[in-house]
Amino acid sequence: MKWNWAILSSIFTIITVLTGCNNKLMVLDPKGPQAQTQADVIMISIWTMSIIVAAVFILLVIMLVKYRASKQPADYEPPHIEGSKLVESICIGIPVIIVIFLSVITIQSNEQVETTPKGYEGQKPLVVYASSSDWKWHFSYPEENIETVNYLYIPTDRPLEFKLYSYGPITSFWIPQLGGQKYAMSDMVNTLHLAADVPGEYMGRNANFSGKGFAENTFDVKAMPQDEFEKWVEEVKATAKPLTQEKFDELLDPGHLGRLTYTGTHLDFSPAPEGENGEHHMMPSHTEHSAMAE
């Protein structure tokens, strides 16, 4: 059973060799405050959990080495041992402490990832309506009054508020290096708070299976300083064609498209499913919760 260690460490070695030459793992290489929070939570949980794993592995090795039949005299009769209150209390107590510790972290960080990132509170966020259709992403910038398909330009050092919804199956908006994902659905709007600290190009994708074209349902993200972003907006306004309803309906047809750019947004003629109905959809888990108690 010492083999287990050997196996695991050899796997670790292989993996480090295989990935070591590349960059760091995307999720653990955050470029924004939300992704940073999440990476921190992940690392804390990995270290905490290593304690448990180590404890179990060590105990297991001790038991297996010390109490194997070949090490015992042939006439050894193992004793009858009921549980011990003390030992079992320790086995409950330590996990309870760990769970409480992680719960506190979770509750705090849950709050953080659901609100404007820390240090960005005073600023006016950039609102982007990100909607998916089979198998594309549409990004509407209502204030700038422009719209892009399959690529997303964002300013750094400014809070971002993504309004997510879908013209089709449930999808999940995910930019691993800026922060974790959230669903885009056709009957409500979800809000995802992100921000980028570092200019650069990042991978974004739909993470939730949505049919045939799912694998290629990605988009490019480029974070740039505010002035550069503004310059880009001006450029779009000067060069891009306006987005008409007919054009938008065409874009919604299932299939893959490259990068497209328009002035105007589809929000004017095909508004996001916001408002009272949207609120309403938050309820199911609560209702069922009470129904379960019946």
């Binding site: 939570v41 592995f57 953080q112 990832v113 691993p176 994902q181």
Partner: peptide, 21 residues
Amino acid sequence: TIGGVTGVMLAMASADYQYHN
């Protein structure tokens, strides 16, 4: 045990935003 502790990691909703799917 590895499966279980990764389950605890997934249970942390904020981090699950990154693990989900």
